[in-house]
Amino acid sequence: MIAQLSIATGFLLILIGLYGALIQRNILRMIVAFTVADTGVNIVIVAVGFMAGRTAPILDAAVPVADAAARIIDPLPQALVLTAIVIGLGTTALMLAYAFKLYEKRRTLDIDKFTDLRG
């Protein structure tokens, strides 16, 4: 049940984030929306690997090596999401740097004012 709830929340976060990125006209707000969608994707991936009644993939006294396969959840989605979060910060920093650069040139963050490529 927890897994289904989390997956549903992740999907809704993706939808909310995309809605914001499509609707907003302020570039900073669009970047905020993208980070919300990013969080949603990460939640979905981690939740798919979750199994009720099992523990985290760390072996210690409570989870002996012998029956680890019956006690832990899938570690692979967690490793992937760890990577995705770090890369997410990198892309956010890039977007922010370009937003700053655009503001410096035009003194505005309104996406409708950037009409150079309009044929």
Partner: peptide
């Protein structure tokens, strides 16, 4: 809650810490 403490640490340190500060740096300049 989803039994992913590694991911939780990363999200707390990076997602809610550093990202917010990056946004505020840019916002203060703008």
């Amino acid at each position: 809650i989803l039994a992913a403490p590694d991911v939780a640490m990363t999200e707390a340190a990076i997602g809610s810490g550093l990202t917010t500060f990056l946004f505020f740096f840019v916002l203060s300049r703008v």
